[in-house]
Write a protein that binds this DNA or RNA. Structure first.
Lengths: 233, 233
DNA sequence: TGCCTTGTTAAGTTTATGTTAAGAAATTAG
DNA sequence: CTAATTTCTTAACATAAACTTAACAAGGCA
């Protein structure tokens, strides 16, 4: 599921470790989760890549030749666009590294080796999920004689209550969020299906049909040649 | 005043900080308020004490040698009895510590040093007061035709009574606590298994299956692509 | 009328979940 | 402490719901 969720908005992750095996392990797992991954095997390369790639998350090995993780992190923070990025340090459990220094440069967390891919992925997913939640739109919309409730994916009409399948719900929710505003099918696909999922536009029609069947005809209006809108008043 | 109130039901507080002065300051003040206090000066000792003492609240310094506060917190959460405990982090105002990591392990709040004893005590008292008020979801839930009691991990349906294994019970209990609200598998794992235990999401499905087998099909509803909910009415 | 858009239905496809069983892990009993 | 038992987790396969596509019908407008 995380893969699907991540796919809706791909996050950029930069992996930095001097051990190619670890880099590969992480790259493989992150890609499987749907992340956009770049790698580097030392601090200097990492900085170069980071400047162009602008990762949202950097996995940074502490112990590296040349430029160690701490110093790399510090320099990453000097790139203005990366001030908000997450930095997770990788460290061997035994290593006596400097927690203080790590946190000083704004490390968000650290992971002790040996790395357990599943645990790490779960943690990273949680990280981005929390991020996504911040911008969370409301949970409930009351409009016309409907109450649209994300809590249980249901729509209430006075007594009646219907639980909608996911896509139908998201579609209704999205339209109801901006009443009396037309959305083209393309726009709806973009916003609800996601930017990188390609289905025929007519798919929207079918979902609209089902919505009308379930909640009634009076809510969603067709604007021929334009799209659909949630009509009220 | 607080002393008297607290005395009615003594709460256990564990103070962890590598600075003995701070430990003493906090211990003194907490005891004056009527709390049952234990202390530790590093993360490892804290874990030992916690296992036996089972504090309801842990005051945890972030910056500590050996085992830092974040990691200590994480390991505290691994003690099943402490999953519900409050963790308040202590941090110097200037310190760039990790909010993300802190919240990931379920930090409930954090306090910036220098510590103002009166303010802190007030906050802690408020914490427990709120706790006391909480519509105690603690022991028993009656919902639909079920009586779910944590006392003996059993579920009653009229005549019938089933004793459930721990995970199944917790899952049912959690869902029944918020009827008609969907929870994603991820959310359920977070809340029931714990923030840093990583099992496959499909594990939830299997437990749901067993619950349905034992208490019946009519209670837990699947919302495809979303999660599960306890449906009632 | 004839073209173009949408409505409608149903069949096809995909994907998430249901289900079962085997192996790990944790408890309990001995 | 080890063995026995229960519970938990994983993996594999089966099933069903949701979703997508396609095809045809219906309506509107030049």
């Amino acid at each position: 599921m995380s893969a699907a969720k991540a796919a809706q908005q791909t996050h950029r992750v930069l992996v930095v470790d001097d051990d190619p095996d670890i880099v590969e392990l992480l790259e493989y797992n992150l890609q499987k989760e749907g992340y956009d991954v770049r790698t580097a095997t030392d601090g200097r390369k990492a900085l170069d890549v980071a400047k162009a790639f602008l990762p949202e998350l950097v996995l940074l090995d502490i112990m590296m030749p040349q430029l160690d993780g701490i110093e790399t992190g510090r320099q990453l923070r000097d790139i203005p666009e990366l001030r908000q990025a997450y930095i997770l340090f990788l460290t061997a459990r035994s290593e006596e590294y400097s927690e203080v220094a790590a946190f000083e440069i704004g490390a968000d967390d650290y992971i002790t080796k040996p790395i357990k891919p599943r645990a790490l992925m779960s943690r990273i997913n949680a990280l981005f999920r929390r991020e996504a939640q911040k911008a969370d739109p409301g949970e409930k919309i009351e409009i016309a004689d409907l109450v649209i409730n994300r809590k249980n994916y249901s729509v209430n009409q006075g007594e009646r209550s219907v639980i909608l399948p996911k896509k139908e719900f998201e579609l209704l929710f999205f339209l109801a969020q901006s009443p009396n505003k037309v959305f083209s099918r393309e726009e709806l696909l973009q916003k609800i299906w996601g930017a990188d999922i390609y289905v025929l536009e007519r798919t929207v029609d079918v979902h609209i049909r089902k919505l009308r069947e379930k909640v009634g005809e009076g809510y969603i209006r067709t604007l021929k040649g334009v799209g659909y809108m949630f009509e009220v008043e």
